[in-house]
Nucleic acid binder design. Structure first.
Length: 581
RNA sequence: GACCCGUUGGUCAAGUGGUCAAGACGCCACCCUCUCACGGUGGACUCAGGGGUUCGACUCCCCUACGGGUUACCA
């Protein structure tokens, strides 16, 4: 009997609760219509409009979502390579979405600049924003054009009682923050601080009638004292507190915040892997809560490390304002080959890439199995020395004609004067000049121990400048060796000139230098000199250095004989003659 | 402040309870050599600190320190 009574009581209360829910349901429906009368499409319609992608098993869908400030930096490129590799090596799709939800920051022409810059470094998209318009059936790919979609789901969340309009003014919010600071509470709009969380329908209707502006906030039910686990493909299992913030979903302009746009877009664009910077880690609980509220599957998150640099003693994040080397234009300006930058970035992107490269020196990057597990999660220091080293190895594999084209292209856009001198002055001589440049670039690069002294365009042109009469300045030459007196310089050069025969092969040529050395009191072999330093003034190396300086103003250079062959008999002789006092 | 993430040589890092703690860049020395570059050989330089757990800890747990990030109607 007693049990029966309790049962009845329970049923009564349950029914009453259900009734209240129904009432609330009606109210939230009304509210949704009040707030978004113009939204008529249903969530289901969007689901069928953007169906799951028809891709092979295991194919990954990735995206790059830059904001159009026009500044695309090394960090973007770092992430973009990861996106690109992951998508393309799995037979998936990589798309470009422009995240232009911050109207204040937009820069004219920035999108084209982004696309051009990424393309230069070899990052190409399958769909999304393109130079010639938008491509793909999951668009539009500009967030600014997706307003209806975001509002539809804001409306949906309102209906479900998981979002609400908030009329708090800027001053009111800052007052709340001050109070929170005074009370040592966490700042933000949450819990009881969320003053408009439980406004009645009537109150809301009244404010709207009065023309008050509002934002749509997420009605959070999270408890930050509770933690949940989430897998990050780079970092492994993460433990995060539940989100309790009533974050803004839609700004007063109706434009979504990053959080909301990310969830909606990556769901409807069917992104499988979200690769983004570590700075997003703290907002992950928000995103998780939103995916749950909308009852959608989450993508796999991959939070990359930030790029750092050494600033004196301190290791710090690369900054846009202070560090020119963060900008991609920096590398283009100096003339780094895009393949070198790509190769370098891959070595810091995947820790086993370098090892693979040593074993597969000729393989294409496409053949490397890129994995998120091998990506680092601690701050990576950008290392210019390493880039230069990588660049040497990359450039040595590029055939001279191809390298020449790259250099000429660089000169044309970054140093027009240089370009004119190299190629442009007399159009009829263009092919001759090009052949000359190719010969210079190929110097010592063949054989099994190729020279590796070419790093980036600016450095290369300085390095080979002595091959060009107008950039060869004998007055700026290095000093002759200290152990060679001035009168010997003249004697040696005169002797060299007298015996010079352009048709000599390399060994005949060098035999003459040995003879010349002996005739003037220098050892024919460095070893002879080392054994008996008292017998000689120096050795054949010093004699060669004298010739080298006369010929190219430099103590350091590739093989002398080969240089003379490129310079030609006339110029070789005249440079030597001019150097004789 | 709170919350997250991280910490192996100067730098990038491999490493998941037993290793003489890989490899690469840079540095130094030597060799090759007409200079330089290349190449070769060798070297110096490492597990942030302290407690546990364990026969045994770079590896697991706790604390501290340090670095980074977030804490917006920016992304």
């Amino acid at each position: 009997m007693v049990t029966l009574t309790t049962d009845y009581t329970l049923v009564y209360f349950t029914n009453k609760l259900k009734l209240m829910e129904v009432n609330n349901q009606m109210k939230t429906n009304e509210l949704a219509e009040l707030l978004f009368p113009h939204i008529t499409k249903s969530p289901a319609e969007y689901e069928s409009l953007f169906p799951k992608r028809d891709l092979p098993e295991g194919a990954k869908v990735t995206r790059l979502g830059p904001s159009p400030t026009g500044f695309i930096h090394l960090g973007n490129l770092y992430g973009a390579f990861a996106d690109e590799r992951l998508a393309h090596q799995s037979g998936g799709t990589f798309f470009l979405r422009i995240e232009d939800t911050d109207d204040k920051r937009e820069v004219e022409g920035a999108v084209d600049a982004i696309i051009e810059s990424l393309a230069y470094f070899g990052v190409n998209f399958d769909e999304g924003a393109m130079a010639e318009g938008q491509l793909g059936s999951y668009g539009p790919y500009y967030q600014s054009e997706r307003g209806q979609l975001y509002q539809c789901f804001a409306k949906e969340l309102i209906k479900k009682g998981q979002a609400y309009p908030c009329f708090l003014k800027e001053e009111e919010i800052s007052k709340i923050r001050q109070k929170q600071e005074a009370e040592k509470q966490n700042p933000g709009i949450y819990g009881t601080w969320a003053a408009h969380r439980n406004l009645t329908f009537e109150e809301i209707a009244e404010r709207i009638k009065a023309g008050e502006e509002f934002v749509i906030r997420f009605k959070s039910h999270g408890d930050p004292s509770k933690h949940f686990q989430i897998e990050d493909a780079i970092r492994g299992t993460l433990s995060m507190p539940e989100n309790e913030m009533d974050v803004v979903l839609l700004k007063k302009t109706g434009i979504p915040t990053y959080h909301f746009a990310h969830v909606i877009d990556d769901h409807f664009m069917r992104t499988t892997h979200v690769i983004r910077g570590e700075e997003w880690l703290s907002s992950l609980p928000i995103h998780v809560a939103l995916f749950q509220a909308l009852n959608w599957d989450m993508p796999i998150y991959c939070h990359t490390t930030v790029l750092m640099k050494m600033d004196g003693e301190i290791k710090r994040k690369l900054s846009k304002r202070k560090d020119p080397e963060l900008s991609l234009d920096y590398y283009r300006g100096l003339g780094y080959h895009p393949a070198a930058v790509r190769e370098y970035l891959l070595t810091i992107l995947n820790s086993n890439f370098e090892e693979w490269r040593i074993e597969n020196p000729l393989s294409s990057i496409e053949d490397f199995n890129f994995t998120t597990e091998k990506m680092g999660s601690s701050g990576t220091l950008f290392d210019l020395d390493k880039l230069n080293d990588v660049s040497k190895d990359v450039l040595v594999k590029i055939p001279a004609p191809e390298l020449a084209q790259f250099l000429i292209g660089w000169a044309k856009s970054h140093n027009l004067e240089l370009w004119k001198r190299l190629l442009g002055e007399v159009p009829s001589e263009e092919s001759k000049r090009l052949a000359y440049l190719e010969k210079i670039l190929d110097l010592g690069r063949n054989g099994n121990k190729p020279r590796k002294d070419l790093i980036f365009a600016q450095q290369i042109f300085a390095f080979i400048s002595y091959f060009y009469d107008d950039s060869f300045d004998p007055t700026a030459s290095d000093n002759y060796p200290e152990n060679v007196p001035a009168e010997d310089v003249s004697k040696l050069l005169s002797g060299y000139l007298a015996s010079y025969d352009h048709k000599d092969d390399q060994s005949a040529w060098f035999d003459k230098i040995r003879l010349l050395s002996i005739d003037n009191g220098y050892a024919a072999k460095p070893k002879d000199f080392k054994k008996n330093p008292d017998l000689y003034k120096g050795h054949v190396g010093d004699v060669s250095t004298v010739i080298r300086i006369a010929l190219m103003g430099n103590t350091q250079s590739p093989d002398l004989w080969e240089i003379q062959q490129i310079l030609g008999e006339e110029r070789t002789k005249s440079r030597i003659a001019k150097a004789i006092k």
